[in-house]
């Protein structure tokens, strides 16, 4: 019998997760601010010697194939772009959580980070290809963080996979959120939302974490962003990069068409771009790690 997680236990789990580094936390705040520019990111990174060193190492890694080394942090950040800086900062301070083996979903270590990166890229592509009035960089960051709750509840879901899959295939309308709630008392979006509060994430990111499977429930002012990540998440799963047993076992909210206009051809372009961008991004982020 699987044990339900009480509210107190959830708080304990959340408290056991390391806090974000000051730089990562501030970067997320900056990204969420619609009026920010790259200079704000540059100023922040300059004040963090470790992050500066990491960024310089990555920009000069083989993945980017630059002929001349970049030695100035300003140029490195302009070249890489804000989203890569956010990926580096989050990967550095919450890497353990993102790399965790999700045994409760029969998903290997590293799968969650791959899924999150692909969702991030796909969410950004959804925004740019559809021309929706959403910040593409914010969609990327929100995509990176959307499934963080899975890392919190996965251990408690061990042994539930067969029954979850069976329920979804036999009970009308039952999806993986229902399965999580049935087995441990709440789903990964609620667990993730608790962590978002503990990490004091900007409200728009917390809303994405809480509502990315049911965007209609998000606050109106953030709903378009939540729909973008909803689609990005589905696109990552369709591309074959979910997190094990729950992949493809969620509902598409067809009301996305009120916020985001994409047809079959644009969707195909987005899927292709996600594969191309992911190869570049993943090799750049790991190639620097290997030298450590």
């Amino acid at each position: 019998m699987v044990k339900q997680i009480s509210q107190e236990e959830l708080q304990k789990i959340v408290k056991s997760v390391p806090m974000l580094s000051a730089s990562a936390s501030q970067l997320l705040q900056i990204t969420a601010n619609a009026d920010h520019d790259l200079m704000d990111v540059i100023k922040l990174v300059r004040n963090d010697a470790n992050l500066t060193a990491r960024v310089l190492k990555i920009v000069n890694s083989a993945a980017f194939g630059l002929i001349n080394n970049i030695t100035s942090i300003d140029r490195a950040i302009s070249y890489l772009g804000e989203r890569i800086i956010v990926s580096i900062a989050l990967g550095d301070c919450a890497g353990k959580l993102f790399e965790k083996e999700l045994s409760g979903y029969e998903s290997a270590g590293g799968d969650l980070w791959t899924h999150d990166l692909r969702t991030a890229i796909a969410s950004r592509e959804v925004v740019t290809q559809s021309g929706a009035e959403i910040s593409p960089e914010l969609a990327f960051t929100a995509g990176l963080l959307h499934d963080i709750g899975k890392a919190l509840i996965s251990d408690y879901l061990q042994g539930t996979v067969s029954e979850a899959v069976e329920l979804i295939s036999t009970e009308e309308g039952f999806d993986y959120l229902d399965a999580e709630e049935k087995f441990v008392g709440f789903d990964h979006t609620r667990a993730g939302y608790e962590l978002a509060k503990a990490w004091q994430l900007p409200e728009e990111l917390a809303e994405v974490i809480r509502h990315h499977h049911e965007p209609a429930n998000a606050k109106e002012e953030y709903r378009a962003l939540v729909y973008a990540v909803h689609l990005g998440d589905n696109i990552a799963m369709m591309g074959g990069f979910g997190t094990g047993s729950d992949s493809m076992r969620y509902k598409l909210d067809q009301q996305y068409t009120d916020y985001i206009k994409i047809g079959p051809k644009t969707l195909a372009t987005i899927m292709l771009n996600v594969d191309i961008e992911f190869e570049k991004l993943a090799s750049s982020l790991t190639s620097s790690g290997e030298e450590d």
Binding site: N234, M238, R249, Y250, K251, L252, D253, I262, P264, A268
Partner: peptide, 12 residues
């Protein structure tokens, strides 16, 4: 495969 409750666009 398709996600649940898919529409025409997403039936890749």
């Amino acid at each position: 495969a398709n996600v649940m409750d898919t529409n025409d666009t997403f039936q890749i």
